[in-house]
Deep mutational scan, measured.
Amino acid sequence: EFILQPIHNLLMGDTKEQRILNHVLQHAEPGNAQSVLEAIDTYCEQKEWAMNVGDKKGKIVDAVIQEHQPSVLLELGAYCGYSAVRMARLLSPGARLITIEINPDCAAITQRMVDFAGV
């Protein structure tokens, strides 16, 4: 995967993360976080594997957030924003999600994903 990915990106003209974002923009409903998550899950199941938590493990994350109702949540590494959208949609009003992503391209994609999801 890591050796072939740059070749695939070159042939496709963009990165996997950008392709995931484009899929979301084309297939998800703006302002609907659940729709965004479903679009990412569908893309990763049908098109390309991606390094995200996914729906199965995501339900565990959901349960922890719902049980503890944090007022501040810190995410280290956002990748394409799946977990940020997943967690933010469950936060109480006034709660904050702080996401740190070292890769500026992934940070920009995450910001667009979060904005599109409306969270």
Rank of each mutant, 00 (worst) to 15 (best):
E1D: 03
F2V: 10
F2L: 04
F2Y: 01
I3S: 14
I3V: 13
L4V: 11
L4Q: 00
Q5K: 12
Q5E: 09
Q5L: 08
P6A: 13
P6T: 12
I7L: 09
I7N: 02
H8R: 06
N9Y: 00
N9T: 03
L10Q: 00
L11P: 01
L11F: 01
M12I: 06
M12T: 07
G13R: 11
G13S: 14
G13A: 05
G13D: 15
D14Y: 10
T15S: 05
T15N: 13
E17A: 10
Q18H: 01
Q18E: 10
I20M: 05
L21M: 04
N22T: 07
H23L: 03
V24A: 01
V24E: 05
L25R: 00
L25Q: 00
Q26H: 08
Q26P: 02
Q26R: 03
H27P: 15
H27L: 14
H27N: 09
H27R: 15
H27D: 15
A28G: 10
A28T: 05
E29V: 13
E29A: 03
P30S: 13
P30H: 10
P30T: 15
G31V: 11
N32S: 01
N32D: 12
A33V: 11
Q34K: 04
Q34E: 11
S35C: 11
S35G: 12
S35R: 15
I98M: 14
T99N: 07
I100N: 08
I100F: 11
E101A: 11
E101D: 03
I102F: 06
I102S: 11
I102N: 07
N103S: 13
N103D: 02
P104H: 14
P104R: 06
P104S: 12
D105V: 06
D105A: 05
D105G: 11
D105E: 03
C106R: 02
C106G: 10
A107D: 06
A107S: 04
A108V: 11
A108P: 05
I109V: 07
I109L: 02
I109S: 13
T110A: 05
T110S: 10
T110P: 05
T110N: 12
Q111E: 04
Q111H: 06
Q111P: 08
Q111R: 08
R112G: 01
R112P: 01
M113R: 06
M113V: 01
M113L: 07
V114G: 06
D115H: 10
F116I: 06
F116C: 13
F116Y: 07
F116V: 03
A117S: 09
A117D: 10
G118A: 13
V119E: 10
V119L: 09
